[in-house]
Computed example of a mutant assay.
Amino acid sequence: MRIGELSERAGVSTRTLRHYEELGLLPARRRANGYREYDEADLRLLAEIRDLVELGFALEETRPFLDCLRAGHPTGTSCADARAVQRRKLAEVDDLIARLRTVRAELADQLDTPVPRCDLTC
């Protein structure tokens, strides 16, 4: 399929597809006439990228998952390198949750602290 069809089926712009190609995330196969050519496997790679980005992964972090799919594994999480990236991302999420809990506790404490009455416009 050509870039326009892939764009439509994947729900991304052709500009996005070209960007992924520049980053080496999407293969750049060309026909004799110079047109880009894609197949169903590329559609699967795009779905993997989309799913991972929605989970908060940076584009570069998707590479091990895509490599795993390209190697013929049933999922992008079937390979050790991808699992390592997942573990790092999980640790980042855990850290973020801990920081957000601290911020929340501080805000709750501030709201629970009585405020002296202000006779002037505060």
Results as ranks from 00 to 15, higher is better:
84 A>K: 10
95 D>L: 03
20 Y>F: 03
61 E>I: 04
2 R>F: 09
15 R>Q: 11
6 L>N: 05
71 A>G: 02
73 H>S: 12
119 D>S: 14
102 T>M: 01
73 H>A: 11
44 R>P: 06
64 P>F: 03
42 D>N: 04
113 T>G: 04
111 L>A: 10
107 L>D: 05
37 E>M: 09
57 F>D: 06
122 C>R: 14
30 R>Q: 11
112 D>W: 04
26 L>Q: 07
13 S>R: 10
95 D>Q: 06
2 R>K: 12
92 E>Y: 06
14 T>H: 02
59 L>M: 12
102 T>G: 14
121 T>M: 13
82 A>S: 05
117 R>K: 13
36 R>F: 03
51 D>H: 06
79 C>I: 00
48 E>A: 07
19 H>S: 08
51 D>S: 15
62 T>R: 07
85 V>P: 02
114 P>G: 06
15 R>G: 10
39 D>K: 00
103 V>C: 09
112 D>R: 13
87 R>S: 01
92 E>D: 10
84 A>G: 08
122 C>K: 15
16 T>Y: 07
20 Y>W: 00
102 T>Y: 01
70 R>K: 09
113 T>H: 05
101 R>M: 02
121 T>R: 15
3 I>C: 06
69 L>Y: 01
94 D>Q: 15
105 A>P: 09
34 G>M: 04
107 L>M: 01
41 A>V: 02
58 A>P: 13
10 A>G: 13
39 D>P: 07
120 L>N: 11
1 M>K: 11
70 R>W: 02
30 R>P: 07
94 D>G: 04
39 D>E: 05
102 T>A: 12
63 R>F: 07
21 E>V: 15
